[in-house]
Nucleic acid binder design. Structure first.
Lengths: 231, 231
DNA sequence: GTCATCATGTAAGCCGTTACATGATTGC
DNA sequence: GCAATCATGTAACGGCTTACATGATGAC
Protein backbone atom coordinates (compact mmCIF):
# COMPACT_ATOMS: atom_id res chain seq x y z
CA UNK A 1 0.00 0.00 0.00
CA UNK A 2 2.44 2.58 1.19
CA UNK A 3 5.04 1.08 -1.11
CA UNK A 4 2.71 1.52 -4.05
CA UNK A 5 2.09 5.13 -3.17
CA UNK A 6 5.79 5.87 -2.81
CA UNK A 7 6.69 4.25 -6.09
CA UNK A 8 3.85 6.03 -7.83
CA UNK A 9 5.03 9.40 -6.64
CA UNK A 10 8.65 8.65 -7.47
CA UNK A 11 7.64 7.75 -11.02
CA UNK A 12 6.70 11.36 -11.51
CA UNK A 13 9.67 12.95 -9.90
CA UNK A 14 12.69 12.21 -7.78
CA UNK A 15 12.12 13.20 -4.21
CA UNK A 16 13.47 13.00 -0.72
CA UNK A 17 11.55 11.56 2.20
CA UNK A 18 10.27 14.77 3.64
CA UNK A 19 8.84 15.93 0.36
CA UNK A 20 7.35 12.51 -0.21
CA UNK A 21 5.57 12.74 3.09
CA UNK A 22 3.96 16.02 2.15
CA UNK A 23 2.87 14.76 -1.23
CA UNK A 24 1.48 11.59 0.33
CA UNK A 25 -0.60 13.64 2.74
CA UNK A 26 -2.09 15.85 0.08
CA UNK A 27 -2.24 13.88 -3.12
CA UNK A 28 -3.81 10.56 -2.37
CA UNK A 29 -7.09 9.52 -0.84
CA UNK A 30 -5.05 9.23 2.31
CA UNK A 31 -6.42 12.16 4.23
CA UNK A 32 -4.43 11.29 7.31
CA UNK A 33 -1.01 11.31 5.76
CA UNK A 34 1.82 9.06 6.78
CA UNK A 35 4.24 9.41 9.65
CA UNK A 36 8.01 9.37 9.39
CA UNK A 37 8.19 6.27 11.47
CA UNK A 38 6.38 4.53 8.69
CA UNK A 39 7.76 6.33 5.68
CA UNK A 40 11.49 6.00 6.26
CA UNK A 41 11.45 2.29 7.01
CA UNK A 42 9.35 1.81 3.89
CA UNK A 43 11.95 3.66 1.84
CA UNK A 44 14.58 1.45 3.40
CA UNK A 45 12.72 -1.68 2.45
CA UNK A 46 12.27 -0.46 -1.09
CA UNK A 47 15.94 0.40 -1.30
CA UNK A 48 16.99 -3.05 -0.10
CA UNK A 49 14.65 -4.55 -2.66
CA UNK A 50 16.35 -2.48 -5.32
CA UNK A 51 13.15 -0.69 -6.22
CA UNK A 52 14.38 2.76 -5.36
CA UNK A 53 17.84 4.22 -5.20
CA UNK A 54 19.36 7.29 -3.63
CA UNK A 55 20.46 9.46 -6.53
CA UNK A 56 23.01 12.16 -6.81
CA UNK A 57 21.42 15.26 -5.37
CA UNK A 58 21.43 17.89 -8.07
CA UNK A 59 20.40 20.91 -6.12
CA UNK A 60 21.90 23.82 -8.01
CA UNK A 61 24.80 24.51 -5.67
CA UNK A 62 25.18 28.07 -4.44
CA UNK A 63 27.32 30.17 -6.79
CA UNK A 64 30.04 30.77 -4.22
CA UNK A 65 29.61 27.56 -2.35
CA UNK A 66 31.52 26.87 0.82
CA UNK A 67 34.14 29.51 1.27
CA UNK A 68 33.34 31.86 4.12
CA UNK A 69 32.26 30.61 7.47
CA UNK A 70 32.76 26.93 6.86
CA UNK A 71 36.27 25.61 6.43
CA UNK A 72 37.04 24.09 3.04
CA UNK A 73 38.46 20.92 4.57
CA UNK A 74 35.38 20.28 6.62
CA UNK A 75 33.11 20.79 3.64
CA UNK A 76 35.17 18.37 1.60
CA UNK A 77 35.11 15.83 4.38
CA UNK A 78 31.38 16.07 4.69
CA UNK A 79 30.92 15.78 0.96
CA UNK A 80 32.94 12.57 1.00
CA UNK A 81 31.25 11.16 4.07
CA UNK A 82 27.62 11.70 3.25
CA UNK A 83 27.85 10.46 -0.32
CA UNK A 84 24.55 11.04 -2.05
CA UNK A 85 23.25 13.54 0.41
CA UNK A 86 22.87 17.10 -0.73
CA UNK A 87 23.84 20.13 1.28
CA UNK A 88 21.01 19.90 3.70
CA UNK A 89 21.37 16.23 4.44
CA UNK A 90 18.66 15.41 1.95
CA UNK A 91 18.65 11.99 0.43
CA UNK A 92 16.91 12.12 -2.91
CA UNK A 93 15.37 8.90 -4.13
CA UNK A 94 14.57 7.81 -7.62
CA UNK A 95 12.74 4.79 -8.92
CA UNK A 96 14.69 2.00 -10.64
CA UNK A 97 13.73 -0.40 -13.42
CA UNK A 98 12.98 -3.00 -10.77
CA UNK A 99 10.84 -0.41 -9.05
CA UNK A 100 8.83 0.16 -12.19
CA UNK A 101 8.11 -3.54 -12.38
CA UNK A 102 7.20 -3.74 -8.73
CA UNK A 103 4.89 -0.78 -9.11
CA UNK A 104 3.07 -2.43 -12.00
CA UNK A 105 2.73 -5.65 -10.01
CA UNK A 106 1.37 -3.95 -6.93
CA UNK A 107 -1.03 -1.86 -8.95
CA UNK A 108 -2.51 -4.73 -10.92
CA UNK A 109 -2.47 -7.22 -8.07
CA UNK A 110 -4.64 -5.06 -5.91
CA UNK A 111 -7.02 -3.93 -8.63
CA UNK A 112 -8.64 -7.33 -8.21
CA UNK A 113 -9.75 -6.89 -4.63
CA UNK A 114 -10.54 -3.25 -4.15
CA UNK A 115 -13.10 -3.65 -1.42
CA UNK A 116 -11.38 -1.10 0.73
CA UNK A 117 -12.00 2.61 0.21
CA UNK A 118 -8.46 3.74 0.71
CA UNK A 119 -7.09 1.05 -1.56
CA UNK A 120 -9.48 1.95 -4.32
CA UNK A 121 -8.69 5.63 -4.10
CA UNK A 122 -5.00 5.00 -4.21
CA UNK A 123 -5.31 2.77 -7.24
CA UNK A 124 -7.52 5.20 -9.02
CA UNK A 125 -4.95 7.91 -8.42
CA UNK A 126 -2.53 5.84 -10.49
CA UNK A 127 -5.09 4.53 -12.95
CA UNK A 128 -3.36 6.16 -15.87
CA UNK A 129 -0.62 3.56 -15.53
CA UNK A 130 -3.08 0.71 -15.95
CA UNK A 131 -4.04 -0.77 -19.31
CA UNK A 132 -7.52 0.40 -20.33
CA UNK A 133 -9.21 -2.92 -19.74
CA UNK A 134 -7.79 -3.31 -16.24
CA UNK A 135 -8.92 0.22 -15.52
CA UNK A 136 -12.43 -0.51 -16.66
CA UNK A 137 -12.47 -3.74 -14.69
CA UNK A 138 -11.43 -1.95 -11.57
CA UNK A 139 -14.18 0.62 -11.97
CA UNK A 140 -16.79 -2.01 -12.61
CA UNK A 141 -15.79 -3.99 -9.57
CA UNK A 142 -16.08 -0.85 -7.54
CA UNK A 143 -19.45 -0.20 -9.04
CA UNK A 144 -20.85 -3.56 -8.08
CA UNK A 145 -19.42 -3.20 -4.60
CA UNK A 146 -21.22 0.11 -4.24
CA UNK A 147 -24.45 -1.30 -5.61
CA UNK A 148 -24.31 -4.01 -3.00
CA UNK A 149 -23.51 -1.56 -0.27
CA UNK A 150 -26.33 0.72 -1.29
CA UNK A 151 -28.81 -2.11 -0.95
CA UNK A 152 -27.56 -2.99 2.50
CA UNK A 153 -27.68 0.59 3.63
CA UNK A 154 -31.15 1.06 2.29
CA UNK A 155 -32.33 -1.92 4.28
CA UNK A 156 -30.62 -0.67 7.39
CA UNK A 157 -32.16 2.79 7.22
CA UNK A 158 -35.53 1.17 7.84
CA UNK A 159 -34.29 -0.66 10.93
CA UNK A 160 -32.34 1.92 12.85
CA UNK A 161 -34.39 3.71 15.48
CA UNK A 162 -32.06 6.17 17.16
CA UNK A 163 -31.98 9.63 15.56
CA UNK A 164 -28.23 9.93 15.34
CA UNK A 165 -27.51 6.45 14.11
CA UNK A 166 -30.27 6.86 11.60
CA UNK A 167 -28.88 10.12 10.37
CA UNK A 168 -25.51 8.45 10.05
CA UNK A 169 -26.87 5.57 8.05
CA UNK A 170 -28.91 7.86 5.84
CA UNK A 171 -25.85 9.92 5.17
CA UNK A 172 -23.83 6.82 4.35
CA UNK A 173 -26.55 5.82 1.96
CA UNK A 174 -26.47 9.16 0.23
CA UNK A 175 -22.71 9.00 0.05
CA UNK A 176 -22.87 5.59 -1.54
CA UNK A 177 -25.27 6.96 -4.11
CA UNK A 178 -23.04 9.92 -4.80
CA UNK A 179 -20.04 7.63 -5.21
CA UNK A 180 -22.01 5.42 -7.50
CA UNK A 181 -22.91 8.29 -9.78
CA UNK A 182 -19.31 9.32 -9.88
CA UNK A 183 -18.05 5.85 -10.72
CA UNK A 184 -20.63 5.50 -13.43
CA UNK A 185 -19.53 8.72 -15.03
CA UNK A 186 -15.96 7.46 -14.94
CA UNK A 187 -17.00 4.20 -16.52
CA UNK A 188 -18.76 6.00 -19.31
CA UNK A 189 -15.74 8.10 -19.94
CA UNK A 190 -13.64 4.98 -20.21
CA UNK A 191 -16.06 3.39 -22.64
CA UNK A 192 -16.17 6.48 -24.76
CA UNK A 193 -12.41 6.72 -24.81
CA UNK A 194 -12.11 3.06 -25.75
CA UNK A 195 -14.64 3.47 -28.53
CA UNK A 196 -12.83 6.49 -29.87
CA UNK A 197 -9.48 4.74 -29.77
CA UNK A 198 -11.04 1.72 -31.48
CA UNK A 199 -12.51 3.89 -34.20
CA UNK A 200 -9.25 5.67 -34.84
CA UNK A 201 -7.45 2.37 -34.78
CA UNK A 202 -9.64 0.34 -37.11
CA UNK A 203 -10.18 3.22 -39.54
CA UNK A 204 -13.83 2.31 -39.55
CA UNK A 205 -16.98 3.81 -38.17
CA UNK A 206 -17.73 1.60 -35.18
CA UNK A 207 -21.07 2.96 -34.16
CA UNK A 208 -22.22 0.80 -31.28
CA UNK A 209 -19.10 -0.85 -30.08
CA UNK A 210 -20.14 -2.43 -26.84
CA UNK A 211 -23.61 -1.96 -25.47
CA UNK A 212 -22.61 1.44 -24.23
CA UNK A 213 -25.93 3.02 -23.31
CA UNK A 214 -24.87 6.59 -23.87
CA UNK A 215 -23.03 7.34 -27.10
CA UNK A 216 -22.22 10.90 -26.09
CA UNK A 217 -21.18 11.09 -22.45
CA UNK A 218 -21.37 14.55 -21.01
CA UNK A 219 -18.22 14.66 -18.89
CA UNK A 220 -15.78 13.98 -21.68
CA UNK A 221 -13.62 16.62 -23.15
CA UNK A 222 -11.56 15.07 -25.92
CA UNK A 223 -8.12 16.38 -25.08
CA UNK A 224 -8.30 15.30 -21.51
CA UNK A 225 -7.98 11.57 -21.60
CA UNK A 226 -4.49 10.59 -22.60
CA UNK A 227 -2.88 13.42 -20.77
CA UNK A 228 0.30 12.12 -19.32
CA UNK A 229 1.19 8.56 -20.14
CA UNK A 230 4.83 9.24 -20.79
CA UNK A 231 6.72 8.47 -17.58
CA UNK B 1 -12.16 2.77 19.87
CA UNK B 2 -13.24 -0.81 19.65
CA UNK B 3 -13.87 -0.77 23.37
CA UNK B 4 -16.17 2.19 22.98
CA UNK B 5 -18.12 0.47 20.25
CA UNK B 6 -18.50 -2.71 22.26
CA UNK B 7 -19.67 -0.91 25.35
CA UNK B 8 -22.08 1.18 23.32
CA UNK B 9 -23.69 -1.88 21.81
CA UNK B 10 -23.84 -3.69 25.14
CA UNK B 11 -25.64 -0.72 26.65
CA UNK B 12 -28.54 -1.50 24.38
CA UNK B 13 -28.66 -5.21 24.82
CA UNK B 14 -26.71 -8.12 26.27
CA UNK B 15 -24.91 -10.01 23.57
CA UNK B 16 -22.35 -12.67 22.87
CA UNK B 17 -19.21 -12.10 20.83
CA UNK B 18 -20.45 -13.44 17.56
CA UNK B 19 -23.54 -11.27 17.59
CA UNK B 20 -21.46 -8.30 18.62
CA UNK B 21 -19.26 -8.81 15.62
CA UNK B 22 -22.20 -8.74 13.28
CA UNK B 23 -23.65 -5.63 14.84
CA UNK B 24 -20.26 -3.95 14.73
CA UNK B 25 -19.98 -4.67 11.05
CA UNK B 26 -23.37 -3.28 10.18
CA UNK B 27 -24.18 -0.60 12.70
CA UNK B 28 -21.25 1.74 12.94
CA UNK B 29 -19.37 3.78 10.43
CA UNK B 30 -17.00 0.86 10.45
CA UNK B 31 -17.68 -0.54 7.00
CA UNK B 32 -14.97 -3.15 7.31
CA UNK B 33 -16.18 -4.81 10.47
CA UNK B 34 -13.95 -6.29 13.10
CA UNK B 35 -12.23 -9.64 13.18
CA UNK B 36 -12.52 -12.20 15.94
CA UNK B 37 -8.85 -11.94 16.65
CA UNK B 38 -9.49 -8.40 17.66
CA UNK B 39 -12.92 -8.69 19.19
CA UNK B 40 -12.41 -11.50 21.67
CA UNK B 41 -9.23 -10.10 23.18
CA UNK B 42 -11.01 -6.77 23.52
CA UNK B 43 -13.85 -8.45 25.39
CA UNK B 44 -11.29 -10.11 27.60
CA UNK B 45 -9.65 -6.80 28.39
CA UNK B 46 -12.98 -5.24 29.20
CA UNK B 47 -13.85 -8.17 31.41
CA UNK B 48 -10.59 -7.91 33.34
CA UNK B 49 -11.23 -4.22 33.76
CA UNK B 50 -14.63 -5.04 35.20
CA UNK B 51 -16.45 -3.13 32.48
CA UNK B 52 -18.35 -6.09 31.13
CA UNK B 53 -19.38 -9.35 32.69
CA UNK B 54 -20.52 -12.69 31.37
CA UNK B 55 -24.12 -13.01 32.44
CA UNK B 56 -26.34 -15.99 32.93
CA UNK B 57 -27.48 -17.04 29.48
CA UNK B 58 -31.25 -16.96 29.43
CA UNK B 59 -31.95 -18.65 26.18
CA UNK B 60 -35.34 -20.26 26.61
CA UNK B 61 -34.14 -23.83 27.02
CA UNK B 62 -35.70 -26.44 24.77
CA UNK B 63 -38.83 -27.93 26.35
CA UNK B 64 -37.38 -31.43 26.59
CA UNK B 65 -33.79 -30.42 27.03
CA UNK B 66 -31.04 -32.97 27.15
CA UNK B 67 -32.59 -36.39 27.35
CA UNK B 68 -32.18 -38.38 24.16
CA UNK B 69 -28.86 -38.68 22.43
CA UNK B 70 -26.80 -36.95 25.03
CA UNK B 71 -26.34 -38.63 28.41
CA UNK B 72 -27.80 -36.80 31.36
CA UNK B 73 -24.59 -37.07 33.32
CA UNK B 74 -22.58 -35.51 30.57
CA UNK B 75 -25.04 -32.67 30.21
CA UNK B 76 -24.90 -31.99 33.92
CA UNK B 77 -21.14 -32.04 33.85
CA UNK B 78 -21.05 -29.62 31.02
CA UNK B 79 -23.53 -27.34 32.70
CA UNK B 80 -21.33 -27.25 35.77
CA UNK B 81 -18.10 -26.85 33.84
CA UNK B 82 -19.00 -24.10 31.46
CA UNK B 83 -20.78 -21.94 34.01
CA UNK B 84 -22.26 -18.94 32.26
CA UNK B 85 -22.26 -20.45 28.84
CA UNK B 86 -25.58 -21.29 27.29
CA UNK B 87 -26.37 -24.46 25.39
CA UNK B 88 -24.40 -23.56 22.33
CA UNK B 89 -21.29 -22.47 24.13
CA UNK B 90 -22.35 -18.90 23.89
CA UNK B 91 -20.99 -16.47 26.41
CA UNK B 92 -23.36 -13.59 26.81
CA UNK B 93 -21.88 -10.34 28.01
CA UNK B 94 -23.53 -7.46 29.76
CA UNK B 95 -22.22 -4.04 30.69
CA UNK B 96 -21.51 -3.23 34.34
CA UNK B 97 -21.72 0.01 36.29
CA UNK B 98 -17.99 0.42 35.81
CA UNK B 99 -18.56 -0.16 32.12
CA UNK B 100 -21.11 2.62 31.98
CA UNK B 101 -18.58 4.99 33.49
CA UNK B 102 -15.84 3.86 31.15
CA UNK B 103 -18.14 4.32 28.18
CA UNK B 104 -18.94 7.88 29.21
CA UNK B 105 -15.25 8.64 29.66
CA UNK B 106 -14.27 7.23 26.30
CA UNK B 107 -17.09 8.99 24.54
CA UNK B 108 -16.38 12.42 25.97
CA UNK B 109 -12.61 12.09 25.89
CA UNK B 110 -12.57 11.55 22.16
CA UNK B 111 -15.21 14.11 21.30
CA UNK B 112 -12.47 16.67 21.68
CA UNK B 113 -10.23 15.43 18.90
CA UNK B 114 -12.48 14.04 16.23
CA UNK B 115 -10.18 14.63 13.31
CA UNK B 116 -10.57 11.09 12.11
CA UNK B 117 -13.56 10.04 10.02
CA UNK B 118 -14.10 6.71 11.68
CA UNK B 119 -13.82 8.18 15.13
CA UNK B 120 -16.31 10.86 14.36
CA UNK B 121 -18.82 8.42 12.91
CA UNK B 122 -18.54 6.15 15.89
CA UNK B 123 -19.07 8.97 18.31
CA UNK B 124 -21.99 10.32 16.40
CA UNK B 125 -23.58 6.89 16.50
CA UNK B 126 -23.61 7.19 20.29
CA UNK B 127 -24.32 10.90 20.39
CA UNK B 128 -27.59 10.41 22.22
CA UNK B 129 -25.58 9.50 25.30
CA UNK B 130 -23.76 12.82 25.26
CA UNK B 131 -25.03 15.93 27.02
CA UNK B 132 -26.48 18.39 24.48
CA UNK B 133 -23.64 20.88 24.74
CA UNK B 134 -20.96 18.26 24.18
CA UNK B 135 -22.94 17.02 21.21
CA UNK B 136 -23.11 20.47 19.72
CA UNK B 137 -19.43 21.01 20.38
CA UNK B 138 -18.56 17.82 18.60
CA UNK B 139 -20.60 18.77 15.56
CA UNK B 140 -19.10 22.22 15.42
CA UNK B 141 -15.56 20.90 15.61
CA UNK B 142 -16.40 18.58 12.78
CA UNK B 143 -17.82 21.45 10.84
CA UNK B 144 -14.70 23.55 11.12
CA UNK B 145 -12.56 20.57 10.18
CA UNK B 146 -14.63 20.09 7.05
CA UNK B 147 -14.50 23.79 6.20
CA UNK B 148 -10.73 23.63 6.39
CA UNK B 149 -10.60 20.50 4.33
CA UNK B 150 -12.86 21.96 1.68
CA UNK B 151 -10.55 24.90 1.23
CA UNK B 152 -7.53 22.66 0.83
CA UNK B 153 -9.30 20.45 -1.66
CA UNK B 154 -10.49 23.41 -3.65
CA UNK B 155 -6.93 24.63 -3.93
CA UNK B 156 -5.71 21.21 -4.94
CA UNK B 157 -8.25 20.77 -7.71
CA UNK B 158 -6.57 23.60 -9.54
CA UNK B 159 -3.15 22.00 -9.28
CA UNK B 160 -3.69 18.39 -10.20
CA UNK B 161 -3.08 17.66 -13.85
CA UNK B 162 -3.73 13.96 -14.32
CA UNK B 163 -7.32 13.09 -15.25
CA UNK B 164 -7.81 10.38 -12.66
CA UNK B 165 -6.19 12.15 -9.77
CA UNK B 166 -8.16 15.21 -10.65
CA UNK B 167 -11.39 13.32 -10.74
CA UNK B 168 -10.51 11.86 -7.36
CA UNK B 169 -9.80 15.23 -5.84
CA UNK B 170 -12.93 16.73 -7.35
CA UNK B 171 -14.95 13.92 -5.91
CA UNK B 172 -13.35 14.37 -2.51
CA UNK B 173 -14.24 18.00 -2.72
CA UNK B 174 -17.85 17.25 -3.51
CA UNK B 175 -17.96 14.74 -0.70
CA UNK B 176 -16.62 17.29 1.73
CA UNK B 177 -19.33 19.66 0.63
CA UNK B 178 -21.98 17.02 1.02
CA UNK B 179 -20.72 16.17 4.49
CA UNK B 180 -20.68 19.81 5.40
CA UNK B 181 -24.30 20.26 4.43
CA UNK B 182 -25.21 17.25 6.47
CA UNK B 183 -23.35 18.43 9.55
CA UNK B 184 -24.92 21.82 9.27
CA UNK B 185 -28.37 20.33 9.19
CA UNK B 186 -27.51 18.33 12.29
CA UNK B 187 -26.25 21.43 14.03
CA UNK B 188 -29.44 23.28 13.24
CA UNK B 189 -31.47 20.43 14.58
CA UNK B 190 -29.47 20.55 17.80
CA UNK B 191 -29.98 24.28 18.14
CA UNK B 192 -33.67 23.98 17.53
CA UNK B 193 -33.99 21.19 20.06
CA UNK B 194 -32.02 23.20 22.60
CA UNK B 195 -34.20 26.23 22.01
CA UNK B 196 -37.35 24.17 22.36
CA UNK B 197 -36.11 22.56 25.54
CA UNK B 198 -35.13 25.97 26.88
CA UNK B 199 -38.53 27.40 26.08
CA UNK B 200 -40.33 24.53 27.75
CA UNK B 201 -37.98 24.79 30.68
CA UNK B 202 -38.06 28.50 31.33
CA UNK B 203 -41.78 28.82 30.62
CA UNK B 204 -40.97 31.85 28.51
CA UNK B 205 -40.96 32.63 24.84
CA UNK B 206 -37.28 32.64 23.98
CA UNK B 207 -37.42 33.90 20.47
CA UNK B 208 -33.84 34.25 19.32
CA UNK B 209 -31.89 32.19 21.75
CA UNK B 210 -28.46 32.07 20.27
CA UNK B 211 -27.74 33.70 16.97
CA UNK B 212 -29.31 30.75 15.23
CA UNK B 213 -29.67 32.01 11.67
CA UNK B 214 -32.70 29.92 10.86
CA UNK B 215 -35.51 29.95 13.40
CA UNK B 216 -37.43 27.22 11.64
CA UNK B 217 -35.04 24.50 10.42
CA UNK B 218 -36.48 22.32 7.71
CA UNK B 219 -35.21 18.93 8.79
CA UNK B 220 -36.82 18.90 12.19
CA UNK B 221 -39.86 16.87 12.93
CA UNK B 222 -40.77 17.45 16.56
CA UNK B 223 -41.25 13.90 17.72
CA UNK B 224 -37.94 12.74 16.40
CA UNK B 225 -35.39 14.29 18.67
CA UNK B 226 -35.59 12.78 22.10
CA UNK B 227 -36.40 9.35 20.83
CA UNK B 228 -34.53 7.00 23.06
CA UNK B 229 -32.65 8.61 25.87
CA UNK B 230 -33.69 6.12 28.47
CA UNK B 231 -30.88 3.65 29.11
C1' DG C 1 22.10 33.57 18.77
C1' DT C 2 17.98 31.59 18.71
C1' DC C 3 13.72 29.91 16.79
C1' DA C 4 11.07 27.73 13.19
C1' DT C 5 11.38 24.66 9.71
C1' DC C 6 13.55 21.21 7.12
C1' DA C 7 15.35 16.62 7.27
C1' DT C 8 16.45 11.83 8.77
C1' DG C 9 16.22 8.28 11.54
C1' DT C 10 15.24 4.57 15.75
C1' DA C 11 12.45 2.17 19.43
C1' DA C 12 8.42 0.88 21.77
C1' DG C 13 4.14 -0.26 21.46
C1' DC C 14 -0.85 -0.42 19.88
C1' DC C 15 -4.24 -2.10 17.17
C1' DG C 16 -5.67 -5.00 14.23
C1' DT C 17 -5.49 -8.88 10.73
C1' DT C 18 -4.84 -13.65 8.99
C1' DA C 19 -4.42 -18.22 9.94
C1' DC C 20 -4.99 -21.83 12.85
C1' DA C 21 -7.48 -24.94 16.21
C1' DT C 22 -11.70 -26.48 18.31
C1' DG C 23 -16.22 -27.77 18.92
C1' DA C 24 -21.62 -27.37 19.06
C1' DT C 25 -26.04 -27.14 16.42
C1' DT C 26 -29.07 -27.27 12.58
C1' DG C 27 -30.71 -28.74 8.21
C1' DC C 28 -30.72 -31.95 4.67
C1' DG D 1 -23.83 -38.75 8.82
C1' DC D 2 -22.24 -34.58 6.53
C1' DA D 3 -21.98 -29.77 5.46
C1' DA D 4 -22.93 -25.14 6.71
C1' DT D 5 -23.13 -22.06 10.15
C1' DC D 6 -22.64 -20.65 14.75
C1' DA D 7 -19.38 -19.81 18.35
C1' DT D 8 -14.97 -19.10 20.88
C1' DG D 9 -10.52 -18.68 21.21
C1' DT D 10 -4.90 -18.37 20.35
C1' DA D 11 -0.49 -17.17 17.87
C1' DA D 12 2.12 -14.91 14.67
C1' DC D 13 2.79 -11.18 12.42
C1' DG D 14 2.23 -6.58 9.97
C1' DG D 15 1.76 -1.84 9.56
C1' DC D 16 1.51 2.37 11.47
C1' DT D 17 1.78 5.79 15.30
C1' DT D 18 4.04 8.21 19.05
C1' DA D 19 7.85 9.64 21.16
C1' DC D 20 12.50 10.20 21.17
C1' DA D 21 17.16 11.68 19.32
C1' DT D 22 19.85 14.36 16.13
C1' DG D 23 21.32 17.90 13.38
C1' DA D 24 21.37 21.46 9.33
C1' DT D 25 19.61 25.88 7.37
C1' DG D 26 17.50 30.25 7.04
C1' DA D 27 15.18 34.22 8.91
C1' DC D 28 15.11 37.80 12.10
Amino acid sequence: MLELAILGLLKEKEMHGYELKKRLAETLGIATGVSFGSLYPALRRLESAGAVKAVEAREAAPAVPLSGSLGGELAALRARTVGVRSSRGKKVYGITERGQELFAELLEAGSQSSDDDRTFNLRLAFARYLPPDARLGMLERRRSYLLERRIQLRARVAQVRDTYMRSLVEHDHESAEHDLGWIERLIERERAAAAEAGAADGLQAVDKTEGSPNPDPAGLRPGEIQEDSRR
